[in-house]
Design a protein around this nucleic acid. Structure first.
Length: 633
DNA sequence: CCAGGCAGCCAC
DNA sequence: AAACGTGGCTGCCTGG
């Protein structure tokens, strides 16, 4: 039995590390003290819970003064027994530990997670900002430094230093360090003590924001179940795709090298070579470097945003080779290779779903980033296939951000247009430009709508659409007259923030801090956050209705899933019905559809289904990419 | 050698 | 008066 003593907030704490079976008597006595909740943490070999070599090494439980660090190789039974108690736990980022415990100890997510409070959720409700946004940050270390003890050790970074001193890299250290290494055991135990103390400080949130807190914990639990389920991959296809993308990358890298650019990933090199060739580069990055991003290179290569020839100039061969090489390289590594690296032994992918990530509470998906797969080309999404006998399905909210804007702003003109089922952008164009509006007018109207959601101004809209600033300015004024409620609403949010706290409160009661110099973002925050909450509520409702078995993944305003071939048409209809809601009098319409034999089928991949399966997937309007609808100038 | 800033690109 | 929102990830480059 080893006991390590340490100080936390001026108080002695003890980390108990049992070595022999008889040492567990003390652990039993510790549990018998009957703490209302226990801090919970695990130490593992790495982050990919579902990959073949993943290992659970330590499990830690603790209260404010004592932690018990259990070696799983010796005390697996004691660990399981502790977790199966009728007792609450507190963890920081509970889904990770719950999935680890589910996989390695057989205590299912369904049994453990409803008993866990997550300090990451509570901290996000208090202040969702990261460190670089002027907030505290959401990692255990910085939260504890603020709320528990300014001298609380940075266990992750300190251990990284230990790994480095032993000659290992950060990633491999977690599996290589001796299981009884002093610093490793100490830090493992301290995290359980720290998270316990952190809840003591943050537990006021559980009562002050009881509803919101419950909502977020439930959502997090359900999304953890989806993460455990994972998505099937078509591995032979991914392997072919990887080779295809690799070859594409090599081909264009060689071409670029022949033309004098050794490294296509070096913006400086690319920029200098283009200058040498006589091109004029006008744009600069914030730090003053020559800007050679995609839009600059596409223009030089005489390509539009869909990579089609414009015919306005002779394409610059360097620019052309560089963008093609970079795109193929990015797709190969970020997507195809990542799919192979992160898959489990039965060829499923379990991306990390963070149910509460952005300042606006938007969710994120990482390892790999499945919310950011290319949508202009089907080849990457084609990698995802349903289980045998199923088809992929998708259900999304139609222009949800515009609907939310109409609702929260109370603008009756926009609400009526939505109620009548009109095409909002055409309606706007007609009111702004008159009954004889052109398709170019409609595009401007659409851009202004999205500009309103994002807080964009005339310059931005002009830059992205190619329309001249003066006419955009004029259209913006007309827009404000057509929808006076929207302008009033934005104005009132800013005024409130100027008079009172620099924050905005969303309809669900979430307080979102505003940046002093970007108060105009308030409207976007409310709209984006509320759109997220609507999808979150839909996920809860779908589980309630038993439809979770059809779900794979949320993608901001959309749910990806699968359904048995014979029932798919009925399933998508019913999912669509559950998702539909009315928010402050505005209908939040959804569009659910059978996608096909792979996720790529919705994006143009060749279909491999029997012809009698009806498939309908319209191209969606994607607000964040309004520039893709740029005018042809 | 590595962390972190910057640039860039992917999405909604 | 004007104000383009939220993420994840990779590679280059620099400073410690």
């Amino acid at each position: 039995m080893r006991v390590i003593r340490h100080q936390v907030a001026g108080e002695e704490v003890r980390v108990h590390f049992p070595e022999a079976e008889e040492d567990l008597d003390g652990f039993d006595r510790f549990l018998a003290q009957g703490d209302q909740y226990l801090g919970l943490d695990t130490e593992t070999s790495g982050l990919d819970v579902f990959t073949a070599g993943h290992e659970l090494r330590l499990l830690q439980v603790g209260n404010a003064t004592d932690a018990w660090v259990l070696r799983i190789d010796r005390f697996r039974g004691a660990a399981i027994k502790a977790l199966e108690q009728p007792r609450n736990f507190v963890a920081h980022n509970a889904p990770y530990d719950a999935l680890v415990i589910d996989r390695h100890l057989g205590v299912p997510v369904e049994q453990l997670m409803p008993k866990i409070w997550d300090t990451k959720i509570l901290a996000h409700i208090v202040d969702p900002r990261g460190k670089d946004e002027g907030g505290i940050g959401l990692d255990l270390k910085t939260l504890c430094a603020v709320h528990v003890d300014p001298d609380a050790p940075d266990t992750q970074n300190d251990l990284t230093a230990v790994f480095n001193s032993l000659g290992w890299k950060k990633v491999s250290g977690w599996s290589r360090i001796a299981i009884d290494h002093h610093a490793y055991v100490l830090y493992a135990g301290l995290d359980a003590i720290l998270v316990h103390r952190l809840l003591q400080v943050l537990q006021g949130v559980l009562s002050e924001s009881a509803e919101l807190s419950k909502f977020e914990h439930k959502l997090q639990y359900l999304l953890t179940l989806l993460q455990r389920k994972g998505m099937p991959l078509d591995i032979p296809y991914v392997q072919r795709l990887l080779i295809e993308l690799h070859n594409e990358n090599v081909e264009y890298c060689d071409l670029a090298a022949d033309l004098g650019v050794d490294n296509v990933d070096s913006p400086a090199q690319v920029g200098n070579r283009l200058i040498d060739m006589g091109e004029t580069l006008t744009e600069r990055t914030p730090s003053g470097q020559l800007k050679v991003d995609r839009s600059v290179l596409l223009q030089l290569a005489d390509l539009d945003r869909d990579w089609k020839r414009i015919g306005a100039r002779e394409p610059n061969p360097v620019a052309d080779a560089v963008i093609r090489a970079k795109r193929a390289g990015k797709w190969a590594k970020t997507y195809a290779q990542a799919f192979l690296d992160h898959r489990d032994p039965s060829d499923r992918l379990h991306p990390t779903i963070n149910s509460l990530q952005a300042r606006t509470a938007r969710m994120s998906v990482s390892r790999p980033p499945l919310q950011q797969l290319p949508s202009s080309d089907w080849r990457i999404r084609r990698a995802f296939i349903p289980d045998p006998g199923h088809v992929m399905i998708a259900a999304d909210y139609m222009a949800v951000e515009m609907r939310v804007l109409a609702a929260v702003s109370g603008d009756l003109t926009m609400q009526n247009a939505i109620r009548q089922g009109l095409d909002l952008h055409s309606f706007t164009a007609e009111r702004v430009f008159g009954p004889d509006f052109t398709s170019k007018d409609r595009k401007i109207a659409k851009s202004i709508g999205f500009g309103k959601v994002y807080g964009g101004g005339a310059d931005g809209i002009s830059r992205q659409t190619g329309a001249d600033v003066e006419s955009v300015r004029h259209a913006l004024q007309a827009y404000d007259q057509v929808f006076p409620g929207i302008r009033r609403y934005s104005f009132s949010l800013i005024q409130r923030a100027q008079r009172g706290a620099r924050e905005v409160v969303t309809p669900i009661g979430r307080r979102l801090p505003l940046d002093e110099d970007r108060l105009y973002a308030a409207t976007n925050y409310v709209v984006q956050s509320t759109s997220r909450d609507l999808l979150a509520k839909a996920i809860l409702n779908l589980f309630e209705a038993g439809f979770d078995k059809y779900l794979f993944l949320p993608v901001h305003d959309e749910l990806i899933g699968q359904a048995p071939v014979g029932e798919a048409v009925d399933v998508v209809r019913e999912i669509g019905e559950v998702m539909e809601s009315t928010f402050q009098g505005v209908r939040i319409a959804s569009s659910a559809a059978v996608v096909g034999s792979s996720w790529g089928s919705g994006y143009g991949a060749p279909e491999q289904l029997p012809a009698e399966m009806p498939i309908r997937k319209e191209r969606r309007e994607r607000p964040g990419q309004w520039f893709q609808d740029g005018l042809d100038i």
